[in-house]
Design a protein around this nucleic acid. Sequence first.
RNA 1: GCCGAGGUGAUGAAAUUGGUAGACAUAGGGGACUUAAAAUCCCCAGGGACGUUAAACUCCCAUGUGGGUUCGAUUCCCACCCUCGGCACCA
Length: 831
Amino acid sequence: MLSVESMEYNPKEIEPKWQKTWADAKAFEARDDSPKPKYYCLIEFPYPSGDGLHAGHVRSNTAMDVVARKRRAEGYEVLYPIGWDAFGLPTENYAIKTGKKPALVTKENTDTFRRQLQALGFSFDWSREVNTTDPSYYRWTQWIFLELHKAGLAYKAKMEINWCPKDKIGLANEEVVDGCCERCGTKVEKREKEQWMLAITKYADRLEKDLDTVDYLEKIKAQQRNWIGKSDGLLFSSPVKDTDIVIETFSAHFEAFCADTFVVIAPNHPLLPRLLDGVSNKEEILAEAKAITERRSAAGHAEIKEVEGVFTGRYIVDPVGNGELPIWIANYALAEYGTGIVKCSAHDERDFAFAKKYNIPLKPVLFPSLPEERTRVENREVCYSDMEQGILSEPADFAGKTAGQSRDAISAYAVEKGLAKKKITYKLRDWVFSRQRYWGEPIPMIHCEKCDWVPVPLTDLPVTLPDVENYQPTDTGESPLAAITEWVNTICPSCKGPARRETDTMPNWAGSSWYYLRYVDPKNDQVFCDPKKLAYWSGANEKLSTINYKLQNAGPVDWYNGGMEHTTLHLLYSRFWHKFLFDQGHVPTSEPYAKRTSHGLILADGGVKMSKSKGNVVNPDAIVLQFGADSLRVYEMFMGPFDQAIAWNTDGLVGARRFLERAWRAALRVDKEAEPSSALLVLANQTIEKVSHDIEELKMNTAVAALMILLRDIEKEERVALFPLETLIRLLAPFAPHIAEELWEKIGHSEPLYRSHWPKADSSKLELSLLTIAVQVNGKVRDTLSVPRTISEEEVRALALGRDSVKRWLEGKEPKKIVYVPGRLLSIVAE
RNA sequence: GCCGAGGUGAUGAAAUUGGUAGACAUAGGGGACUUAAAAUCCCCAGGGACGUUAAACUCCCAUGUGGGUUCGAUUCCCACCCUCGGCACCA
């Protein structure tokens, strides 16, 4: 006889029990030699911050856990790994404050995270845990860097970088938000510094184009495209009068090129001094250019309110026949986009404003169709820039046509006449890869006076971080590593002379750019990943023989979920590294992730961001203690659409817990002799279809709702029959795995549920024998009919027209038209 | 300004290709059980109107706003307003 106590739902008891069972059985460890088809689910590995796990982690981890558990039940070999993206500033800053070694802090934090994640019952393969700060891991991060270097994609360049004076660190463009440091909000300064750069721009076209080959949410693709900023147009070459200089200008809106009347050049353009050679007031102009650059810099990245500039005294001889055009220095011209020099006309807002301010002649050639508006454009009163609908007056071949319809022809015309070349430009910049901090992967390069930069030999990898007493970064912009002379001073691998190590470290995006590959073979000390294992997990065994860019698909990851905040950082960087590794023949696929989805943020009660300072952070430990892991999981799946930001509401958790309690009680009432009603049989089969489908679409909220409905109808029956109950438990298992296992055992199964299969709906039992048909009269529902499924249209018509309510609304009129939607409704029109 | 996603009860939300708007849940109201409370179970619940002791019943209005297409629009089309996310002197 069971004691009363064990009859009650007690998550504190059953959750640790099943977590231990799964761990002991190595239930979720993936095999590399499995005969089954593979499926690789990935979540972004967490940064193990001192704050511990938060509600947002739970949301995305649970969603992918649901997918992973469903896939296993469907017969796949599933890889659902976990690890730690543990290099980074917060840990280092904590070390600076407390003097505690970052490695030790990381150890403590990962221990906390591991415990918290395990308490939630995620089906991670813990045997493949990786940590980016582990030398056996970052050895391969360094190796990839050296591969990039060997291929000429890593280079050192003196350049203006974004410098955060508070964090004392150089930032990538992607890490600057509104001219401020993404992390601390401090206004970013510009500094000249020698930095390691990665030539991601060499991959711009493929990063853009190959988005067509992967299944990412449309908004993710849109953001990446936006960031890459592809723009195709024409490149014009123009000789500068009285010099031997030929300048190039890029134009994406070239349709109105006949309107060009002047040229602007960026105030910090490297060509400027040469251009001004021989101009009488050269120094004066250069000084003004410098002043303009500084004013612009001071304004930050915010929009420049007022255009300003200065005439250079030089002219180009326009190749397209607009005569001699003056070259101006203008504050709105960017040295780093296009060629840094632009031909300007009346058909651009800024050009127009600039010309007005400095009385530069304008010559409109593009006009609106309305006569009075046309006059205003002709009189140069307004700027007109509609490159779609605007009507051209020049060149003569295109006069009277719209710019939009002529674009391609004009491009061809200009190229044919030798006036310009086709050109594609990108907004994407090369990736600043150096950080002047301690807690990152050392860049494995050695500088020798004689040999310049020499890579560390592969046999010497990893270059490990030395023990340091002081992690404080310096204002000089040097990494704390620079102070460790015994580490810095080394010998040149090439000439054996004295040399110095690179003291900058890699950005925290380095380790996360390839971690999904290491999960495939996390302990390998010969290569970053065994090609055979990678072939299996890429589903590419048979493809390996034909490494051909066009034929390759995406992988190894089948489904990757993560945050939108990583779309232009991590996601783009890792696609770049993967493509590079593919080109080097190290991976069999050209894209790393077949499918990418994203979760919405979980906000605090009231819709504001959760933050420690506001004290509104939800701690999963406390929730697990009070409600149980299963309730938390179900609640986070049920709370709303997965990809949408949503506010936490502890009241909502009550509903999830109540649902599980009811399922528990229903299961204990199981009666193996009982037969379910035919309606319940149909509902159970429909629920299988609904839940299976919804999980694939990440519509977890409606999947849970469907389970609640099934439970409600199970409860309604006098006796709890086995089939509907087992269906409920199986479908519930991915969401609330502990209670599902426990109930499965309680109703008499000796084989655990995690080894069981996913249910399949019986297609003959998906429909009720009776259905309800709505009857509309003149577009409004006036009656409903309950009819057998097999009923014919004629019978429905006759039945409906015989009803009193229908007769009443027809008011004696003859139906003009009757529309019948089989099984749904009958619409009678009499007006 | 450009790109993307949205706007539905008190609240989170749901609604295959256009086909009975508001499933499911929370909060709320009422009832049962209880000495009582909690828990649990049952019922009600978009707004309004007629009407009635009360209810059933019936009708009208209602998915950001205004138009359109249609027998029928939360869904499709046009215009506009608002919110959120991203980008932005990018030529």
